[in-house]
């Protein structure tokens, strides 16, 4: 039997905080090479889904496979862009240094980053248009710039799968355009991207694949096939137009 190749395969995943389930029995297949939005209301478990895929949160049931293997064996194939608020931006370090952190995974323990890693980091900074801010202390960056630094850090990981938790949060329109262009480029290069997204209006424009989530999995598939009134109502509990204008 020939199995279709899935970048991420999630089976019966249940995650709970203090025994209160936030994700209930999720089954999700994410094909390789899609640019996928994860949408759902607040508290739907979108960030939790990403963290569970990465093993940051331990599920109480179910399994996650990355290209058919457990995450621990595929660490270098996955890059993660966390929410901007997840770190302390007053930390004494520069943009370049934060981006270099993306290379630590391939370096492993003890080995230190050298000129090769620095070159990769500089290239990534250039890609996100942040080269001129390379020596800037990170608290001196604007919200949009901080988001780009996180994106650059994921780029140097040179992974096959990119998991992003609200990369468009608190960024201006120009930065949003710049980020989405980079995401589309990555997809063209055959990468798989999973993006927690809030703005329903831009889903058809930005993404080709979508997953509706509200504690349980509602639907997952191609945007042009399943991004409709029915699924939006099921996910948000209100009608499509209201949800989209929210």
């Amino acid at each position: 039997m020939i199995q279709k190749k899935y970048a991420i395969q999630i089976d019966d995943l249940t995650v709970a905080y203090n025994y209160k389930p936030v994700l209930w029995d999720i089954d999700l297949l994410i094909p390789e090479g899609v640019l996928m939005a994860v949408v759902g209301p607040n508290g739907a478990g979108k960030s939790t889904l990403i963290k569970a895929i990465l093993g940051i949160i331990k599920p109480i049931a179910g399994s996650v496979k990355i290209f058919g293997k457990p995450y621990k064996k595929q660490v270098n194939k996955v890059a993660y862009v966390p929410q901007k608020g997840s770190v302390d931006w007053d930390f004494p370090t520069t943009s370049l240094d934060v981006v270099m952190m993306g290379t630590y995974g391939s370096l492993g323990w003890i080995k230190r980053p050298g000129s090769k890693e620095k070159k990769q980091a500089l290239e990534a900074l250039e890609k996100v248009g942040m080269l001129e801010f390379k020596n800037r202390q990170i608290s001196q960056l604007s919200g949009g710039q901080q988001q780009r630094i996180f994106l650059a850090r994921a780029l140097v990981q040179n992974a096959s799968i990119y998991l992003m938790d609200e990369p468009f949060q608190g960024v201006d329109a120009t930065t949003e355009k710049a980020i989405i262009n980079i995401l589309k480029e990555l997809r063209k290069a055959g990468k798989t991207l999973v993006v927690v997204h809030h703005d329903l209006q831009t889903v058809p424009e930005y993404f080709d694949w979508v997953t509706f989530l509200n504690v349980k999995g509602i639907a997952s598939g191609q945007v042009k096939e399943i991004f409709n009134d029915n699924n939006l109502t099921k996910t948000y509990g209100i009608n499509y137009k209201v949800a989209i204008n929210k």
């Binding site: 621990k72 660490v75 966390p82 930390f91 370090t93 952190m101 230190r112």
Partner: peptide, 20 residues
Amino acid sequence: FFKELKLSTFDKGLATTLGF
């Protein structure tokens, strides 16, 4: 372990996902 300490102090989540 300077690199590891820096990373896990700044961003625990990334440290976990990178296998530290």
